[in-house]
């Protein structure tokens, strides 16, 4: 598999959200608007790239038995870095993402890639894998956020597009489930025909 293919697989064919169904909690919890989804996606991408990189560097020194706890410590360190950086420089985004920033630690995508890819591959391809998967995740979150924002407040990235009645329910919890359900059905269809 070429590096390019390794990078692009995260977008549609192996998209972590739409196809692998990993990381559902932040996917639903942070996508009430496109900008929140993008912010969460990029924060997760950073953690994913860094932890993939470090784990693939140290994979030969870690005994097999304690590998999962060690991975968790590495991931949690980078999450703390993101948490403190966001708190300092992007306080409003940090406020609106809230609890979901520390919860990147238990995002199945991060540990999943560490275990399934970074612990077996070279540093360079692990970075590419992390970047591809992370951006695929960010893409999914932004798409979902944009769809919900468009339906719920007829705007995308805070820019008003259509004037009309608002369907507030799509910004609230039930809308998240419903929009994601239809998006997954749509992506399944696309993946099958291509």
């Amino acid at each position: 598999m070429g590096q390019m293919q390794n990078f692009t697989k995260g977008f549609l064919r192996e998209n972590p959200v739409f196809v692998l169904l990993l990381g559902m909690c932040p996917t639903l919890g942070t996508t009430s608007s496109a900008i929140n989804g993008l912010g969460m996606g990029l924060a997760t991408s950073f953690v994913l790239v860094m932890s993939n990189m470090v784990i693939s560097m140290v994979k030969d020194f870690i005994p097999d038995k304690v590998r999962i706890p060690s991975f968790i410590v590495i991931i949690a360190s980078f999450v703390t870095v993101v948490q403190l950086t966001m708190q300092a420089y992007l306080p409003s985004l940090y406020e609106s993402l809230g609890l979901f920033i520390p919860l990147i630690v238990v995002n199945c995508i991060v540990l999943g890639r560490a275990e399934a890819f970074a612990s077996k591959n070279t540093v360079w391809s692990s970075i590419i894998d992390g970047l591809g998967m992370g951006l695929g995740f960010a893409f999914a979150l932004t798409l979902l956020g944009a769809a919900r924002e468009l339906l719920g407040s007829s705007a995308i990235f805070g820019i008003n597009l259509v004037k009309g009645d608002l369907m507030l329910v799509f910004i609230l919890a039930p809308g998240g489930f419903i929009v994601l359900g239809y998006l997954i059905a749509l992506i399944n269809k696309l993946n099958k025909t291509s």
């Binding site: 919890a173 359900g181 997954i184």
Partner: peptide
């Protein structure tokens, strides 16, 4: 056909969440 499995489960969860509202 396209909605089988996870998609319909998510839509159902949405309706359940609506009830909880």
């Amino acid at each position: 056909k396209g909605m089988r499995g996870i998609p319909i489960a998510l839509v159902t969860a949405g309706i359940l969440a609506l009830a909880f509202m």
